[in-house]
Design a binder for these strands. Structure first.
Length: 570
DNA sequence: GCCGTTTTCGGCCCGACTGTTTTCAGTCG
């Protein structure tokens, strides 16, 4: 039993109790325990063995007993009982926008609705609008919400796919006879969401790796099996395809499977023009008699007379033409990042202490990191009143005296209020190193209102960066209505930096807008918006968006040295 | 359900928006 699976049981328990209308604090306690368990470095089993469970914050007598029960029996009786009472489908319904625990319960109790399909039918038959607490509009919202959730169901966030991929790869790599293994497809291209996970291995004898994957603990069931490939379904809800090829076909197959299709087709055409054939056997001359030796993918591109194209660019968006002219961008790398400009601490709603941020970022090799807690109007996140903000900045300045090679920057993530006013006066903003403006309220304003609201913030000379510009949460919340093109134009005029938020469920702005911003001369900042240490490492996903947007280091302000950065922020 | 302590129980992130029940429950960030 892994910590994450244990955490998942407690999360679902909390969800079920919420639908039953149990005490909100009890529910919050389970959620908190789940969060803590998921982030523990040590296996829960080990803590139990050493009788240290009660030392874990958020774990008291009751939860400790439940953990022990799960460790011994593999499940939790209270959880199982609740599942008999409330079908899992009701939990899915609770995820719809506008539907919370109370309405989900009502739909189940009064209409017997326990799946999205049944809910859709009930909505189409107009049975929902007459329930107390519902309306015709909500019925309509439900149908839209179902569409959104269905679209999401086919897609998995990149971070989940890559973490699973890493685990499977390190597992398969150790199997006897396996020479090489890697991910391919959209996961390798770092697309923001993926349909399934494609893996490729090189081995003379395919049966062994295929058997091993079929029995891996993360695998729920085998969907399909052929002599050299297997398709399995994981507990994470993501399908995984593993193909095994002979070692000599590994590189050409890796290249072909990475795609995208249009990119590969274009390369095949170019090969043909040169009297070559490109397919999963490799590159061949004439009628297939002479096979060119390929050490890596680089050799394929060179043989076709072009420079190497990294997986992130293989989307048929002009990369082939650019590579033929040796005119590809000098893409930004994770190692170019010199600091993170959007981090929260315990002063507002994060688990990170100021000193933790400093230590972790220094160890990452950063030269600087900006502390940007929430501003005063965001009460739920414990936003900082002016006096606390000033106090925090004083402490940061004191801390900086201790560092030689590192600087904590003072800052704030300041709410842009519904009327476009800022949450703090100019006199305060001008004292800070980094001022981020962002929208956390009144998402339902009209496109014109939100656009003008953000424009107004951009026009304030003290606002340096706009964070998560569209407000989208992948698969959960559409972006608010906003004219992004117009805002990019404004940012170009005002010199405002736009954020690529690295959080895998945001990735906001997305690659298309990032590329447009670059084309219009707008600078970008790649930030994590981290609330705990683990999330400080999510910068890789923001960098991936930047790479897919063809960004170079000079497009991104947090690749700059501190002095250069200060110049831009001034 | 956890925590801290005042060691036995009260406090635990708050306030705005929505749609309509026109006074508030439900949802959201």
């Amino acid at each position: 039993m892994q910590n994450i699976e244990m955490a998942w049981i407690f999360t679902e328990l909390a969800d079920l109790l919420e639908i039953k209308g149990e005490d909100v604090y009890k529910i919050r306690a389970y959620r908190r325990a789940a969060e803590v368990l998921a982030n523990l470095e040590v296996p829960v089993k080990e803590l139990s063995r050493q009788r240290l469970l009660s030392k874990v914050p958020g774990v008291g007598k009751a939860i400790e007993a439940k953990i022990e029960e799960i460790l011994q029996t593999g499940q939790l009786s209270k959880h199982q009982e609740l599942l008999k009472e409330i079908p899992r489908g009701v939990l899915t319904i609770k995820e719809l926008p506008g539907i919370g625990p109370s309405r989900a319960r009502k739909l189940y109790q009064e209409l017997g609705v326990k799946s999205l399909d049944e809910l859709e039918l009930a909505a189409k038959e107009r049975k929902i609008r007459d329930l107390k607490g519902f309306s015709a509009k909500l019925e309509w919202d439900i149908l839209n919400g179902i569409d959104m959730v269905r679209n999401r169901q086919g897609r998995t966030r990149l971070s989940v796919a890559r973490e699973l991929a890493a685990e499977f790869i390190s597992f398969i790599k150790l199997l006897p006879g396996v020479k090489q293994v890697d991910m391919t497809g959209s996961t390798r291209r770092w697309k923001e969401t993926v349909g399934d996970l494609d893996l490729l291995a090189a081995a003379e004898e395919p049966a062994y790796p295929l058997d091993a994957l079929a029995t891996h603990p993360r695998v729920k069931e085998v969907i399909e099996r052929q002599s050299n490939r297997i398709r399995v379904y994981t507990w994470w809800g993501l399908s995984v395809d593993l193909q095994v090829v002979p070692p000599e076909e590994y590189i050409p197959t890796l290249h072909r499977n990475t795609g995208c299709k249009e990119h590969y087709a274009k390369l095949q055409e170019i090969a043909q023009d040169k009297g070559l054939t490109l397919n999963h056997h490799g590159l061949t001359k004439g009628c297939g008699e002479e096979v060119l030796a390929l050490q890596n993918e680089n050799d394929i591109y060179h043989a076709l007379g072009m420079s190497y194209i990294p997986p992130e660019l293989r989307e048929n968006r002009g990369e082939v033409e650019a590579a033929l002219k040796d005119d590809l961008p000098n893409l930004i790398e994770v190692s170019d990042i010199k600091g993170d400009l959007h981090i929260h601490t315990t002063w507002s709603d994060s688990a990170l202490e100021l000193s933790e941020v400093a230590n972790y970022c220094r160890n990452k090799g950063y030269a600087y990191a900006a502390i940007t807690d929430h501003s005063r109007s965001l009460k739920i996140a414990n936003g900082l009143e002016v006096s606390r903000l000033l106090e925090q900045h004083q402490i940061i300045r004191e801390m900086n005296k201790e560092f030689e090679d590192f600087t904590l920057l003072t800052g704030v993530e300041m709410d842009i209020l519904p009327n476009g006013d800022l949450d703090y006066p100019d006199e305060l903003l001008e004292q800070m190193d980094v001022v981020i403006g962002s929208v956390h309220t009144a998402f339902k304003q009209s496109k014109k209102e939100i656009t003008q609201r953000i424009m107004k913030a951009m026009e304030n000379e003290h606002v340096d960066i706009i964070a998560h510009l569209t407000g989208r949460i992948l698969g959960r919340r559409e972006s608010y209505a906003v004219d992004v093109e117009a805002l990019i134009e404004t940012a170009a005029k005002t010199g405002t930096i736009l954020e690529i938020n690295s959080s895998p469920d945001r990735l906001d702005i997305n690659e298309d807008y990032a590329r447009l911003a670059r084309d219009m001369g707008v600078k970008i900042s790649i930030n994590t918006d981290a609330h705990d240490t683990r999330r400080l490492d999510e910068i890789i996903y923001g960098v991936a968006v930047a790479r897919r947007a063809w960004l170079e280091p000079h497009d991104v302000v947090n690749t700059y040295d501190l002095e250069e950065l200060r110049e831009v922020l001034r």
